[in-house]
């Protein structure tokens, strides 16, 4: 195919529903849905199941709107990186303007609908989360500082607080604890990705830790942050979120997580390149399971009635 026919094909390409769905970052959406659901169910207020269902749908759509607006603003970077060059905009399936309009429309619909379905505090919280992800993280932090993932991670940590707000119209210590778990989990998760997607961030000139401070420093940071996360996750078991299942899950999950982070810490680059970053890839995959199981254990404790009544926070 010549360049001319390629351009013609892209102009004639009619995006399908799947292309728009891809703009919503569906894998991130799964995390948003699950953690927001835990936030709603863990809250001490009973809601009608249909209200929960509708609220979760619009929280997910709000997360999807953030994803679409992120892809709109970052399409220049996405086209440079192997990991993202097949996304709908760089691959020519959807134009940048379409993605922008789609993202803003979804953001408006999701915020208004969450306000009508649940309450306006939760809706404003969702609006703030979209603003934080799109403006603070995507437009400002990501291209400016290696702390992009650390501070920007707050956007991905808000969904359980939004879920809690859906049920209670407010914020509490429990919702802040759930936020903190995801907030501390995010940096090691993404730094592991930056280690094995080597070259991508350098080419796109994104100031990830691997680019600004080097790969050795990134390994140190992963180990340090994972220890802090493990200590916090274990501490949370002594709060009102804790329970027997949570405690046992936290002990096992964090022991494995810290061991994996230790393996990343002691490795050097030639060793990692020799096995194509197997340890780093495993750490990244495990981190996803870690978060689902840790949050899932909160639900199991609630279901079994095994949560600690003596939690001091």
């Amino acid at each position: 195919m010549s360049d001319t026919t390629l351009v013609k094909a892209e102009i004639n390409y009619e995006p399908n529903i799947g292309d728009y769905f891809a703009l919503l970052k569906p894998r991130v959406m799964i995390l948003v849905v699950f953690t927001a659901l835990v936030g709603i169910i863990a809250a001490p207020v009973d809601l009608h199941p249909f209200t929960i269902f509708v609220s979760i749908i619009f929280i997910a759509l709000g997360g999807g709107a953030s994803g679409a607006l992120n892809m709109w603003y970052e399409s220049d970077l996405d086209s440079l990186m192997r990991r993202t060059r097949n996304r709908p905009i760089p691959s020519g399936k959807i134009t940048s303007d379409e993605a922008k309009a789609f993202g803003f429309a979804l953001a408006g619909i999701s915020v208004v609908m969450l306000g009508l379905a649940a309450n306006w505090f939760a809706a404003l919280f969702l609006l703030f989360t979209i603003f934080f992800y799109v403006v603070i993280y995507t437009m400002w932090l990501k291209r400016w500082t290696p702390q992009n993932i650390v501070i920007g991670g707050a956007a991905g940590a808000f969904p359980p607080m939004i879920g809690w707000a859906v049920a209670t119209s407010g914020i509490s210590m429990e919702s802040v604890l759930m936020f903190s778990l995801i907030f501390l989990w995010t940096p090691p998760h993404f730094w592991a990705l930056a280690l094995f997607m080597r070259g991508d961030y350098e080419i796109a000139r994104v100031p990830m830790l691997t680019v600004t401070h080097g790969r050795r420093s990134t390994r140190n940071h992963i180990f340090f942050y994972t220890i802090v996360l493990a200590m916090f996750a274990l501490f949370t078991s002594s709060t009102s979120l804790g329970g027997w299942v949570y405690l046992l899950t936290a002990i096992v999950l964090n022991a494995i997580f810290v061991t994996m982070a230790f393996k990343i810490w002691v490795r050097d680059e030639p060793e990692a390149e020799a096995d194509n970053f197997k340890v780093e890839r495993n750490f990244f995959r495990y981190s996803l399971m870690y978060l689902f199981l840790q949050f899932g254990s909160i639900l199991v404790d609630l279901g079994l009635g095994t949560n600690f009544s003596w939690g001091f926070l």
Binding site: P15, N16, I17, F50, T51, A117
Partner: peptide, 22 residues
Amino acid sequence: RMSKNIGLGIILVTFVALIFGL
């Protein structure tokens, strides 16, 4: 375009059903 229109139709019907249920 047909597949996109059918998909959009399903989304709109679902939206109406959600509003009604709510």
